[in-house]
Amino acid sequence: MVACLLCCVVDNRKVSLPLDLGVCVLGIYSLCATGGRSSMADDKDVLRDVWFGRIPTCFTLNQDEVTEREAEPYYLLLPRVSYLTLVTDKVKKHFLKVMKAEDVEEMWFEYEGTPLKWHYPIGVLFDLHASNTVLPWSITVHFKNFPDRDLLHCPSNSVIEAHFMSSIKEADALKHKSQVVNDMQKKDHKQLWMGLQNDKFDQFWAMNRKLMEYPTEEGGFRYIPFRIYQAMSDRPFIQKLFRPISPEGNAHTLGNLLKEMYPTAIPNDGEPKRYQVVIHGIEPLLETPLQWLSEHLSHPDNFLHICVIPTPTD
C-alpha cells in the first residue's frame, strides 16, 4: 500500500485536474492484491476507468501557417485510448475557419518538435513525450510540410480502422493463434471498431471480452501482446514473445517482463530509480501479474503499451 500511495502522489502532482484516472485504477488493484481475492465488480471498474481516461489538451496553430486572421487556440479532452486523427475533426474545422483552402494540406500534429504518430494511442503519445509536464498538453497543429519520413498518412477514418483491426488481429495471433478473431464475423469486427469510434464502452466490451478469454487450465494467454516504448530511442518499440506463465507454472509479473526485455528500467537495490514504467499514466506495481495487466490495462487494440521514461529530476 505504501508503494501505491507514493505513485498516487507522483500522479497527482502531474495532473491538476481530476481527469487522469491513475489514482483510482491503482487503488482498486492494490485492494485486490492485498485482499487476496479479486472482485469482478472492481475489475470492471478498472476497464471503465481506462476507457474513460481523458487528457486536457490545447491545440495551437503552427506559427508559419498562412492565416487570414489570428487563430485562437482550441481546447479538447482527448480520450487516452483513441487516436489523434480520429478525435480531432473539431480541431480541423476550427482552424480551417481562418485559412484559405489552397493553404491547407494534410493535417498533422507536433509536440515540442516531435511529430506525433497518430497510429499510437493518444495515451501512449502523452506518456512517452509529455509525462511530468504541465497540463493542458500543448500540441501544435500543422497543415503544411507533412513529414513523410516520420508519419504515416491518414487520408480517412478507414485507414485508422484498418490499422486498429490489424493490431487486434496481431494481438489475437499471439493470444489464441488467431482463433478467436477468425471465428468472429465481419459485423463483430465492425462492433469493435464502432465501439471505439463512437466511444461506446458497453458495445466495445460486449465483443472484446471474447478476445480476453483463455482456457482456465492454461492460466492465461499463449503470449502477452505488449510493446515497450522509450522516448530517447531510434528504435520505435520492443516487441517479442513472452508468456504469462513461467515453465514452473508461476504467474509472470510486470517486473519479470521488464527484467527480460529492458533490465535497466528496474532499479537496483539501494540505487535511485532512473526510470518510470508507465501504463495509462500510472506506475503499476512491478509485482502485478502480467496476465491481469493484459486483460485490464491493454488498449482497445488489445496490446499492453508500456512506456519507460526517465524519472524527473526536479
Binding site: H119, D150, L152, H153, S166, R235, P236
Partner: peptide, 19 residues
C-alpha cells in the same frame, strides 16, 4: 498493401500483411 511503421526503423513503409 498498407502503409505501416517499419518496426525497427520507425519510418513509414508499405507492407503486405502477413496474416
Amino acid at each position: 498493401i498498407t502503409q505501416q511503421e517499419h518496426p525497427l526503423l520507425g519510418q513509414p513503409f508499405f507492407m503486405l500483411h502477413p496474416c
